[in-house]
Amino acid sequence: MEIPVEFLLEKTIIVVAVFTVSLVIAMYSTYAERKVSALLQDRIGPNRAGPLGLLQPVADGVKFFMKEEIIPSSANKFLFVLGPSLAMMTACLTGAVIPWGSTLEINGSIVPLQVTDLNIGVLYIFAVVSIGVYGVMIGGWASNNKFSLMGAIRASSQMISYEIAMGLSIIALIMTTGSLSIRDIVEQQVDGHWNIIYQPLGFFIFMVCAFAECNRTPFDLPECEAELVGGYHTEYSSMKLGLYLFSEYINMFISSAVMSAFFFGGYDIPYIEKLGLDHNLVTILGTGFFFFKIVLFIFLFMWVRWTLPRFRYDQLMNLGWKIMIPLAIINIILTGSGILLFK
């Protein structure tokens, strides 16, 4: 089979763009995190590096690279390096199936703003996110440190528990959409028929589980600096620590993108077709609107982090197994009966 050069070029550009955008957004999420935390606590936050402190992420990055790289002598060196690499890799992989925008018409050819439109995109995201737990697990285990191990065990059991509820909440969504392709899901929500209207409970469960999957407060038990020093990344230093922290922010970005695509219409601006604008312009506006939604979700992540204290571990497990999973099952039943009654 011959692969046309234009196709390769187009995909390469999109891959590089998605990769760059996720890295840049993750970079500025660290800045936003500090700024938001400061503002919520009546402080100002970073404002020295560059105007408004906008160069702060660059300074942080340089600092991470200049720090001494320490690998504990009792650690398993191969796994110790593999952990953060895996965490970073899986975080970046997820962006491939998310539709960042509608289509662009360039010289008569139609270019979808998506790396690949897998017909099982939803499953792909779940698969990759599940691999993400290995990054934490391997890193914590390879450190040969009891705090790291505790953090890693907590992380893996937490992520596994909440993945179930997350999957169940998505099943209800898929029952209404009838497709596992994320582009199909987004296309069905055109003109304000956003899934949040039909699946409010599903969205709520999905959001709570996304918080847990990203190891964000109130579910940041794996790091839990009060009890576990730093959790799974206690022994990490320099850019390997940076990769762990960075992958958390990329995960946050991707979860925000997934949430806005699944429940808030993705790149859909309601009734923009009525304005009769050029198709390319509509696409670009839609992508901008998609990123606006993503930024709002990232802000929500941070807002919650600086409001709520973290759960105790048994509370976390109670919430996951005894509340979230039954709720998700009830949601499936409700959705099923709703489909039977109204369609």
Binding site: L39, D42, R43, I44
Partner: peptide
Amino acid sequence: AIVSGMLITLSHLFKKKATIQ
């Protein structure tokens, strides 16, 4: 309770900052 707590933190977003440069 969580929502009311979040509204409290949000209101602090607009409050005067205590920092002196």
